[in-house]
Design a protein around this nucleic acid. Structure first.
Length: 257
DNA sequence: AGAAATGTTGCGCT
DNA sequence: AAGCGCAACATTTC
């Protein structure tokens, strides 16, 4: 269940481990969520050398020497696993086998992880991109939706998920239920900073906890979106609101409405 | 042992 | 008619 900081660490670790290797074979074990045909994917990248693995929004991308790109979206439960010789993981969606024998398997017990050949470039800024400046945010927030929903909207900003949205809003001292249009300009600037700071902090904490991680999750360092904590670092009681996703917040956050 | 978790899509209600 | 909330996806982990 990775969010942006997790994916950022995975991408860097995978890149270090796999870049420069030649892809010998790709086996697609589950086609249910596939947009392109197996044949198209195989002919696009088999025999090509992996140049770079990076993150874009909530996707991992593998770019090959012939410029073809394989996008991987983990959805809720997808994970990546290395193997040698034989892939014995359950729920495999696809496996990549490199010329030196290294294997990488994408697994998902829910079978929702997605594989996309040559994903369309998006105009929506990534949460860590420079295009996400105060002007963009001010325009994007000019609507009546709750601010948390705006942060989670991948058509507004790509990469923020449920847990980090709570952390970001606590840091910015904005209630998740604030009407985004009512947030004053000075607060929007604080929000902009908080997005970058919280995501960078998450990445650092994940790497500290598990330097070589390429799958799964590290969450226990979270200050607010954390079921084991009762109080924020500044001593306010953490409240929870259930919905389709749980929201954690405190009274330290101002409700603009 | 039952609830909670995570992202996206699509639908229905207001 | 924008915005919200819910169900579904299916299993693991606590």
């Amino acid at each position: 269940m990775p969010e942006l900081p997790d994916l950022e660490v995975f991408a860097k670790n995978l890149d270090k481990h796999l870049s420069g290797k030649k892809l010998k074979k790709i086996n697609i074990k589950n086609k249910s969520k596939l947009k392109s045909s197996t044949k198209e994917i195989k002919s696009a990248i088999e025999g090509s050398t992996l140049k770079k693995i990076f993150r874009d929004g909530k996707e991992l991308r593998l770019r090959f020497s012939n410029s073809n790109v394989l996008g991987l979206h983990m959805m809720l439960h997808g994970r990546l696993n290395y193997f040698t010789n034989k892939n014995e993981f359950k729920y495999t969606i696809l496996e990549l086998i490199f010329a030196d024998g290294t294997g990488l398997a994408l697994t998902d017990f829910q079978r929702n992880a997605r594989v996309i050949l040559n994903p369309e470039p998006s105009k929506v800024p990534d949460a860590l991109s420079k295009k996400l400046n105060s002007k963009y945010l001010t325009d994007a927030l000019n609507r009546n939706a709750a601010i948390k929903n705006v942060l989670l909207d991948q058509d507004v900003i790509r990469g923020i998920g449920n847990a980090y949205a709570d952390e970001i809003l606590w840091k910015a001292k904005i209630s998740p239920f604030s009407v985004s249009r009512q947030i004053p300009p000075a607060r929007i600037k604080v929000l902009e900073k908080s997005i970058r700071q919280v995501l960078a902090w998450g990445e650092k904490e994940i790497r500290k906890a598990d330097p070589d991680i390429i799958g799964g999750e590290v969450r226990d360092f979270m200050k607010i979106h954390n079921p084991t904590k009762k109080k924020s670092p500044t001593g306010a009681a953490i409240k929870k609101k259930s919905g389709s996703r749980k929201t954690y917040y405190t009274n330290e956050q101002v409700l603009y409405k």
